[in-house]
Design a protein around this nucleic acid. Structure first.
Length: 754
DNA sequence: GGGCCGTCGCTTTTT
DNA sequence: GCGACGGCCC
């Protein structure tokens, strides 16, 4: 063994070493969080290239995000010290997208096909529904889209879709038409990228064989989050040698909603009984305290391989729990704590992450960051490519690339205003559909003077628009995309349009800035064919665009946090209905996934972990009461420390004791702060709000009250304590904050309902 | 065809 | 609390 090889496996533990060097045949690695799985993957790639003398192009590595792919490539280059020409590394979607372009002649699309995102998909769904007179009040387009997406992820095409029941029949009809429109538009949705590749392999054994021979070794990361289509692709490509290496952790499966099925891990063992199974159990990321908390949460899930995660980093700072009155107080606490800890521990802003279940929760955090002057970077939310002006201009670019894209066509045909209204566009599309014309064919027919239901002035405007696009098409062939965008901006007077449609100057400037940013992006990619540029931006994930260089706090959803790590992590909004999310209350599998989500969040923390929740939270514009998440009740008390404020500390401690103690007596909980813990319960029936009425208590949640000494405040909740009533009040004087008072002594004056 | 204004529904999570 | 959409009027 050469010195270079030894250094490749030096510093790896025996299990990691086994995973790196087990090159032949199927291998399944079950890797706990922080167990050095990326290290294993990169070293394995390097090992295959160095030791097995493999050409990089004979390797295919699938990662979960483009960011992870880029990082992996970078790290392998760091090990090998040279370029990895031809190494295929990327997400399933990006790898399939490229493959489908290369093999276009064996598919139903041309190689300049477009990739539709969710908004585009909904436009097509709506069109398909309108055409068939399906009421979108009765059948939610979004639900139908989800059903179609699930079907595709199971590799069920529109013809194989069997409808049982009325809803399914509606779905079947929409699916049928939806797919026709996509093909006619020369467009694919995300799921088609996978399904069409699978179909290609099924119907063209010669093509499949070519790739089977080309890719001698396969590696798949985050295997627990693969769906049926992806698993099919892995299995097909791996054959016949089956040099397939998959890494996953069932406890981190959090994408069932998009068709992922962690049982693929079990399926893999069944399909490859000769597979080597390697467990990575040593954690190099977190302290023992963090791991204890993580374990306490995940151990409540059944049907899993229990792993004995361990670390050599004994001890650690106890997990801090903070109970806030409102979402804004929670945010304030998080941000001021970051500032305080950053100074105390000499950390950078980028060492901190704030995590939450839903994107909507980012708002309060952002506002607090702005107030406190803490720099932050937001992952997800309304991303750059979702801005109206960016979408408009991209629609022009997409049309230039592919004039059959009816979605982009109907988006910009009247932007800026050209006097072509909704009615004209609908008539045009209906006429095109009736004649089975694609959009470009229909436009040509108009120019040829074919009889249409449109009036002559409308026809003239359509023809004019068509000509304009064709001219840009000429320009696009030079691959100077920034110049092309300039032509579009000038010819359409787009800036003027922006000015006219902006509410104020501030909004106008912001939008113009976005246009400039898009132009900058096009300029950076000078020489890149338009189609490739469009493909690239269609497949970027929010997380891909986050800069590591920027020193700022990261705000992200728990889903986006997968695979990342931070010295200090804040898990926020730990409330019933949020985490676990109310949408998972009625399915045990959904609840188990929420728990895994919590587990993923906890295990991102290297040194310090903060868990926070709020009594009241702004939802849909008004404040609604909440209760601490049931998952908090599973955390061992001796790993936890209360909030810094003395009073809240007591409150918090009491809550936790209460939770653990009352875990098996649901009845006693009603009317208490922790009512309903451990039991599915819709926030609509929150005992905090409804129980006092039932028990005929004097004070009700939300009431404004005055105390002789503490001043004015709001009742958080009230509960019967023997013959007396215990009222918890949040006083407007911040120094007083929350108080628990005995009603008979406190003499609270009721000032009215909120 | 276009602009204004009121109603409604909404939120998981994402390639 | 906000954006999408439908109804209404010019």
């Amino acid at each position: 063994m050469s010195a270079a090889i030894t250094s490749l496996i030096d510093g790896l533990n025996p299990q990691q070493r086994a995973a790196v060097t087990a090159t032949e045949g199927p291998v399944l690695v079950l890797a706990g969080p922080g167990s050095g799985k990326t290290r294993v993957l990169t070293h394995r790639i390097a090992y295959l290239i160095r030791e097995k003398n493999l050409h990089p192009s004979a390797l295919m590595a699938v990662t979960f995000t483009n960011k992870a792919a880029a990082e992996m490539k970078h790290r392998v280059e760091g090990i090998l010290g040279d370029r990895l020409k031809g190494l295929q590394i990327g997400t399933f979607h990006s790898i399939c997208a490229r493959l489908l372009r290369r093999e276009a002649e064996s598919t139903r699309h041309r190689n300049d096909y477009l990739i539709y995102d969710t908004d585009d998909q909904l436009t097509v769904i709506n069109q398909a529904m309108t055409e068939q007179n399906i009421d979108d009040k009765k059948y939610k387009p979004r639900a139908i889209l989800n059903a179609i997406s699930s079907a595709k992820n199971e590799l069920t095409g529109p013809d194989a879709f069997i409808a049982q029941g009325y809803m399914a029949e509606v779905t079947r009809r929409v699916y049928q038409r939806y797919q026709e429109i996509l093909i006619s538009n020369n467009a694919r949705d995300f799921d088609d990228l996978l399904m069409d590749t699978a179909i290609l392999f099924r119907d063209h054994p010669d093509v499949l064989e070519k790739y089977q021979q080309f890719y001698e070794y396969l590696l798949v990361d985050e295997f627990q989050d693969t769906n049926a289509a992806q698993y099919y692709l892995v299995k097909e490509l791996a054959a016949p040698q089956n040099n397939v290496f998959v890494v996953g952790d069932e406890d981190q499966a959090i994408y069932a909603f998009r068709g992922a099925d962690y049982r693929n891990v079990l399926q893999f063992r069944r399909d490859f009984p000769q597979a080597q199974i390697i467990l990575l159990e040593q954690n190099y990321r977190s302290t023992q305290v963090v791991l204890d908390v993580a374990r306490a949460v995940i151990d409540k899930n059944s049907n899993r391989t229990r792993k004995a995660l361990f670390t050599e980093r004994q001890g650690g700072t106890p997990v801090q729990v903070f109970e806030a009155y409102s979402d804004s107080e929670e945010a304030e606490y998080v941000v001021t704590t970051i500032e305080e800890q950053r100074r105390k521990l000499s950390l950078s802003y980028k060492d901190f992450a704030i995590m939450y279940r839903t994107n909507a929760q980012s708002r309060a955090m952002e506002e607090a960051c702005i107030r406190e002057g803490v720099p932050y970077k937001l992952v997800g939310g309304i991303g750059f490519y979702k801005r109206r002006e960016v979408r408009d201009l991209l629609a022009y670019l997409r049309l230039v690339n592919n004039l059959d894209d009816s979605v982009s066509f109907s988006r910009v045909i009247n932007i800026p205003k050209r006097g072509i209204g909704k009615k004209s566009v609908e008539d045009f599309q209906a006429w095109a559909a009736k004649n089975r014309y694609t959009t470009s064919r229909a436009l040509e027919a108009l120019a040829d003077g074919e009889v249409t239901p449109l009036n002559s002035s409308a026809v003239k405007k359509f023809i004019e628009f068509h000509r304009m696009i064709l001219e840009w098409r000429q320009e696009a062939s030079s691959n100077n995309l920034a110049a092309l965008l300039d032509s579009i901006l000038i010819r359409t007077h787009y800036t003027m349009h922006l000015q006219e449609t902006s509410d104020d100057n501030e909004q106008f400037m912001e939008r113009e800035e976005n246009v400039k940013e898009l132009r900058g992006l096009l300029d950076k990619n000078i020489g890149m064919p338009l189609n490739e540029f469009l493909e690239e931006i269609a497949l970027v994930a929010d997380i891909d665009t986050v800069s590591d260089a920027l020193d700022a706090v990261t705000l992200l959803t728990l889903h986006a946090a997968k695979g990342l790590e931070y010295p200090v992590v804040f898990l926020t909004g730990l409330e019933e209905g949020l985490l676990p999310h109310m949408r998972s209350f009625d399915e045990p599998e959904g609840m188990a996934e929420e728990r895994r989500l919590m587990y993923v969040g906890i295990t991102r923390a290297m040194q310090r972990l903060y868990l926070t929740y709020a009594f009241r939270r702004l939802m849909y514009g008004d404040s609604t009461p909440g209760r601490p998440s049931r998952f908090l009740a599973d955390i061992p008390l001796d790993r936890v420390e209360g909030a810094p404020s003395k009073m809240l500390q007591n409150q918090s401690r009491r809550s936790f004791e209460a939770e653990t103690r009352w875990d098996d007596s649901t009845e006693r909980r009603s009317g208490s702060l922790l009512a309903g813990l451990g039991r599915p319960n819709k926030p609509a029936s929150l005992p905090a709000a409804s129980a006092p009425k039932k028990e005929n208590l004097k004070y009700k949640t939300g009431q404004k009250v005055r105390h002789a000494k503490f001043g004015e405040g709001v009742v958080i909740h009230s509960l019967r304590m023997g013959s007396d009533e215990e009222v918890t009040v949040s006083f407007s004087d911040k120094k007083i904050g929350l108080k628990r008072l005995a009603a008979s002594f406190a003499n609270l004056e009721i000032l009215g309902e909120k």
